[in-house]
Every structure is written in structure tokens, then in C-alpha cells.
Design a protein around this nucleic acid. Sequence first.
DNA 1: GCGATTATTTAGTGCGTACTAAAATTCGTT
DNA 2: AACGAATTTTAGTACGCACTAAATAATCGC
Lengths: 226, 226
Amino acid sequence: MTALPVQGALTAPAEDCLKAIYDLERSSHGAAVTTNDLAHRLDLAAASVTGMVKRLADQGLIDHAPYRGVRLTESGRRAALRTLRRHRVIETYLVQVLGFGWDRVHAEAERLEHAASDELVDRMAATLGDPATDPHGAPIPTREGGIAEGPAGRALSELAAGERGVVARVEDEDADRLRYLASLGVVPGVAVEVVERAPFGGPVSLRVAGESRLIGPQLAEQVMVV
Amino acid sequence: MTALPVQGALTAPAEDCLKAIYDLERSSHGAAVTTNDLAHRLDLAAASVTGMVKRLADQGLIDHAPYRGVRLTESGRRAALRTLRRHRVIETYLVQVLGFGWDRVHAEAERLEHAASDELVDRMAATLGDPATDPHGAPIPTREGGIAEGPAGRALSELAAGERGVVARVEDEDADRLRYLASLGVVPGVAVEVVERAPFGGPVSLRVAGESRLIGPQLAEQVMVV
DNA sequence: GCGATTATTTAGTGCGTACTAAAATTCGTT
DNA sequence: AACGAATTTTAGTACGCACTAAATAATCGC
């Protein structure tokens, strides 16, 4: 459909793209984001991304060096953080107020973030007491566009046997994985201890709330611990 | 933008169009809805409506007799009522839970109704105790697609001097008018008495909560009283 | 009943978003 | 340094949704 973005004039696909660039830039510590990475993240053909990227560059939201990748401009970063704030406030509201499971809010927020006004998001945030993080432990940007992007700790897969910590953030949008992690008790705020770590990308053996748990290496990468 | 409708595969403009057809069919007591009426209601060029109408007819949501107008099919009616339910539940939630003014919820709901899932709407409705009407007095369709479309009383403009009644519904989506009516105390549930009615489409003189009020004829048409 | 007005549809355009297939560029390796 | 593989962009297509201008059908008034 022709979506009706509430602010600026950004379409939903454009907002999604900016969000993805923000995230990939962050997880690559500021390196330029490639077309391919974006295509994978957004589940689009690479050629489609090139088209989107051109439009965003025309609007001054990103800098695009052909064949070299893209980078957010200051105004692109602001737009990305606005969308991220919407997304995370909505996710938190759905879990805390409306009783959604944490594994199901992502898809819902993914649509609502493009339709909700700033006022609605601010009212939701106020109801929640202006929380600093969403249900997955991700920081929520402020109304003014600030964000507390700490180092966010280390991945569970990097801890050595015997190390302890508290789950700070779970970097995953896949409902099945989130549901599985929740069933193991691995959610933000919970204390964990690495009992054993098999080498060469083997599984991680954990102690969570007195129970013994085994987590595969891919999953362990997405769980950040402090 | 290319919007991402949650159900079926209906785009936001298509849902808006079905809703408009439903409403116009109802207010014309079942007569076929003309392209022109739709164009005015949706604020589109007539030619754009013809295009939309064709697509909806291809999908079996409406019957279109060229040059003769359109009618909802059973499945079109169901789709319209789904959207109407979303819209009205969201409006009610925004007013009752999030403290929005009744004059500002329409635009917000107009966008959210295309993004919210059935589950979200049902949870909102449950939180509100499954209300029967929205803040403007309009009936909310049930989850199953039923709706209590009573005669909804008579318009304020049809009452004779001396008649009394209770405001049941205010048929208006214009924020300014709603704000004005609210400032006069004319909201659903309030008792009113017509003191005098000037002939030939003149203003209506009212008594509302002990105060004397004057309302123009266009506005008086939109206030339904029982 | 026929002409003029009005309503509606068709024709042609543009924009955004997606796609596949082909061309261009960059990168890695020998 | 140069070839081949991978990545990226261009070219061409399609669809939805909007528009204006022109053609066609229905309706109203005499």
C-alpha cells in the first residue's frame, strides 16, 4: 500500500532501511554498511536495496559511495533513532501493559512503529515511566534523540568456564529463539554462570537459577552479559 | 509507501475505501454508492476511485456496475467491519487509557487501524471491557463481525422546539467541530432540550446542562439524539 | 425526446517499491 | 599483475496508487 508515514515524509520501507543501516553500522563499529548486508537484513534483492539507497541519498539521509557502501548522515541518524524509539517503546508497552509475550512483540511493533505518532509514543513511554530499555534489554532512545549505547557487555559465547554475569540484552528478533531462551530462563536481569564451554564453537553449558542448561553457539552469541 | 497490511492482503487505501463504502451504503439506506460520493469522502480524484474500485471488484470485495455505482459483497462487508472494529476500538483505547482528547483520536486511529493485528485490538477491547460504542457513540463491531446498527435516533436538526433527548452519537471526524461541540458540552450521554429552531435551515437553540447554546444547521445534522 | 449538464470511465504519466537478468566494479588469489 | 569470483549497479519489468485531460455514458430540463 501507499503507507502514510506520520512524520517528515519517510515511507515505511525507508524507515526500515535507515533502522537497518543504524544497526549494522553499530555492530560493525562504524564501518560503512554494504548493500549485501542490507539486502540480507531486510530480506530484499540487492538491486532493490540499491534503489532504496539512492532515494535515501537524494534525501540527504545517507552518504552513498557507489560500490563502497553507505553511512548515515546526521539527519539520517536522527530519523533512525526516532524509528528505533517508536519501536522499542511500543514493544515495551505491548509486553508491560497489554500482556504480549516478549517473543511476539517484534512483528507487531515493526508495523506500528510506522503508524504511531510521536505523541502516542510519548504517552506510552510516560505510562511506563520512561523506561531506559525494552523487554530485550535494548536501550530506548530519548525523545530528544539521545541513546545510551554502552558496550553492552560480552556475548555469552565469549565467556570462559567459571565466569558469572547477568543477562543484559538478547539480540534477537526471531520469535522461536526468544521463546526457547525464555523457556530456559535466559532473559534480561537473570544471573548466569558458565559451567563449561566446549571449544571450536561448541555448546555452552550454563547454570541458570540453579538449573543446568545447554546453549548452542549461535544462540550464545546473541546473549549479552555483564 | 507500500504498506504492510496485517491481514488478508488488503492495502491501507483498499481498507479505507471499503470502510467508506460501508458508511455511505449505510447512510443511504442500502443504495449503491457512487464514484463521486466515494471521491469526496476519500478526498481523491474520481478517476483514482474508479481504479481502486476495479481492483476491489477483482478481489470480489465489491460488485461494480459501471456507471451505476458499487455495493459491498458479503466478504467486502466483513472486511469493512474488521477495519471499523479496529478503528473504533483503537479510538476508544486512546481516549480511555492513554488520555487523548476525543477530537484528536480519529487521525491517529486512521493510521493505526491498518497496522494493528487482531490480537492487539482484541487485547485493547478486553482491557476496556469490550465496549459497545466508541467515544463518539458509534457502535463497535464484535470480533465475529456483528454490529448493532440501530436507527441511532434523530438528528438534532430534525427535532422541534420543546423536544428533549440524550446525545447518542456525533457523526463527525473533523477535529475542530468535535472540539467545539465538546466545549458546548454536547457529547454522547448528555441530555439536551431544543429551545427554538429557526426555520429554513437556521440555527438550533439548545439547553445543555442548564446553559443556553446555539448550534448551526450543518453541525446540528451530525448530532444524533434519542 | 433531445440537447446540455453532470457523472464516470479511459488514456496516459509519474512515483515508490519490488523483482530478474545483464553489465560493471571490486577483491582475492595465484 | 591479472584472472576469476563475488559484489554492486544498471536495465528493463510489474504492480499499486495517485494525478490530469479526454472520451463516453447517464440524467435532467425543456
